[in-house]
């Protein structure tokens, strides 16, 4: 089932060569090799380039660039900013993740309405590209090699971390699923897909530091907001709202647990 989805993405020919041996040997090992082969030429670079252009050019009704946007390290500073998010922003009186902060800058500095700024949170092909995914790809690429350093001592962030931890274990819906149902044990997989154990530091670090990612199966760069949104869809929950408090609390919990690990996104994933 997974291999079928896989083949709809790019590099289907390259993959075909893997499939033959994949079933004979360990399929997950082969997928890891495939991922490695693609790592040299990650299509996420196209999103990064588009995001960088958007970052520097005047935008919106007020024709203001992101040079005025403070991601926590000062106006316009991008280098290393993602590795310290989420953080508390006094000007917004709120703990924000990257995507929420980008929307805040678009609304408060560039003059967009909230509705316009969040019109396409998740892209769908070239006709419905997401500016937020491109901007996130650019900003996160500027933290590559930087160790995660979310300020868990800061009381607002600390509170969100604790709320996010509770939410991680919150069972609900028709199927009784929580985040922990799939991400609470070592060495588990769903069908053939390996599942990170996010309750262990190593698992959380490896998973969190590789988002955003270019999803081969979707041909899109997906952000952490998307990751959470789509996990909850599969949990049979209602839809997680973009930039909602719960999304930021869960991000604070997982980003906080990734502290100390080198950020390595945008990555490439199935």
């Amino acid at each position: 089932m997974m291999l079928r989805t896989f083949a709809t993405g790019i590099a289907a020919t390259a993959l075909a060569a893997f499939i033959g041996s994949a079933l004979a040997e360990s399929t997950t090992d082969e997928i890891a090799k495939y991922r490695e082969a693609l790592q040299d030429g990650n299509p996420a670079e196209l999103w990064e380039a588009r995001g960088e252009e958007m970052w520097t050019k005047p935008r919106g009704p007020k024709q203001v660039s992101f040079a005025a946007c403070d991601l926590g390290l000062g106006a316009g500073v991008v280098k290393g900013a993602y590795a310290a998010l989420p953080r508390y922003f006094p000007d917004a009186a709120r703990v924000m993740d990257l995507e929420t902060r980008l929307v805040w800058c678009m609304v408060h500095q560039q003059g967009y309405t909230e509705a316009d700024a969040t019109k396409t949170t998740f892209g769908n092909g070239s006709a419905h590209r997401s500016d937020l995914e491109a901007l996130a790809a650019y900003v996160t690429s500027q933290s590559r090699g930087v160790r995660m350093n979310v300020a868990l001592d800061e009381p607002h962030v600390h509170d969100m971390y604790r709320l996010g931890e509770k939410m991680f274990y919150y069972r609900g819906g028709t199927h009784d699923f929580a985040c922990a149902t799939c991400h609470g044990d070592d060495g588990k997989r769903i069908r053939l897909q390996d599942l990170p154990n996010l309750t262990k530091l190593e698992g959380a670090q490896k998973a969190y530091t590789t988002w955003p990612a270019y999803r081969v199966s979707q041909g899109e760069v997906r952000t952490f907001q998307w990751r959470l949104n789509d996990c909850f869809r599969q949990q049979r929950f209602p839809e997680l709202e973009f930039g909602s408090d719960a999304s930021i609390a869960l991000t604070a919990y997982l980003a906080g647990r990734a502290n100390g690990a080198e950020y390595n996104g945008p990555a490439i994933k199935r």
Binding site: F237, P238, L240, S247, A249
Partner: peptide
């Protein structure tokens, strides 16, 4: 923290299609 986390969850989701908001209401189990 437990109560606030539950309240925050309920204010962070929206009903979509068959996945209505009551899916966030927990039974005792």
């Amino acid at each position: 923290v437990t109560d606030r986390a539950a309240a925050m969850l309920k204010s962070s989701f929206k009903a979509r299609g068959q996945a209505t908001m009551d899916r966030l209401d927990q039974d005792e189990t």
